[in-house]
Computed example of a mutant assay.
Amino acid sequence: MRDIITLADDPDLAHLVDLIDILPNPDVASFWDPKGEGNYSIGAKIKSDLTTILGGEGSASDVDYFAVHVLKYLGRGNGYISEEKIGKNLTALQGLPAAGHAWIEDATRTAWILVTRYSLPRWRLSRHPSEAGAAWLKP
């Protein structure tokens, strides 16, 4: 059986969901699906992630997918939804450029924390099945 992770279990996950909530609603295609990709859109991917997590069925890999999607599609320097577009579309902040910058910094930092929390042990085991840092101690 897999361990379920809820917003109550992980304050960083709850914070990232709060950050997503101040972006446009998921049905705003001009923001989430600017290329008209439908089920393959950014919004569809994040909605799938959040449906599982918020439905009380989210595992570590589900949280990791959500965080990776935030990094890939909304993080600094992404080629999908620009910082300017995020800033212009933050709910109730009326296009304040600094808010867009701050949102991206906060979302990126929080997503990276989640990725390393839930993926790093698996990555380490695949590359170095021994203890953390052991590869650096080899003669």
Rank of each mutant, 00 (worst) to 15 (best):
S59D: 06
L93I: 07
A60F: 03
I20P: 08
A60H: 04
A135D: 05
S126D: 01
Y80I: 13
S59Y: 03
R76Q: 14
T110P: 09
H128Y: 09
A8R: 08
S30L: 12
N78S: 07
L23C: 10
D18F: 15
N89G: 08
G95A: 12
W112E: 14
A107C: 09
D9Y: 10
K72P: 06
H15Y: 06
K72L: 09
N78A: 06
N89C: 06
G55K: 02
A29W: 04
D18V: 14
D3E: 15
I4Y: 00
I22L: 14
D9Q: 09
S82L: 06
L90W: 04
P34E: 05
E84A: 11
I81V: 13
A99C: 12
P11V: 15
T110M: 09
I86Q: 04
L96H: 10
Y40S: 14
D64C: 12
W103V: 13
L71N: 11
R122K: 08
G36H: 01
D64H: 08
K72M: 11
K72A: 12
L19N: 07
D9W: 11
A60S: 07
W103G: 14
A107P: 07
A8Y: 10
L16Y: 12
S48E: 10
D27V: 02
N89I: 03
D33H: 06
L71A: 12
D21I: 14
L54E: 02
A60Q: 04
M1E: 08
D27E: 10
M1I: 09
T108Y: 10
A67D: 00
L125A: 04
A111K: 04
D21Y: 11
L114E: 11
P11R: 15
E131Q: 00
S41F: 00
V68M: 05
S59P: 01
T110C: 10
E37K: 01
D49N: 07
K85F: 07
S126K: 01
S48V: 09
L71M: 09
G56S: 06
G100A: 12
A132C: 01
I5F: 02
G43Q: 03
S61V: 02
L13E: 08
S41W: 03
I22D: 12
K35A: 05
P129V: 01
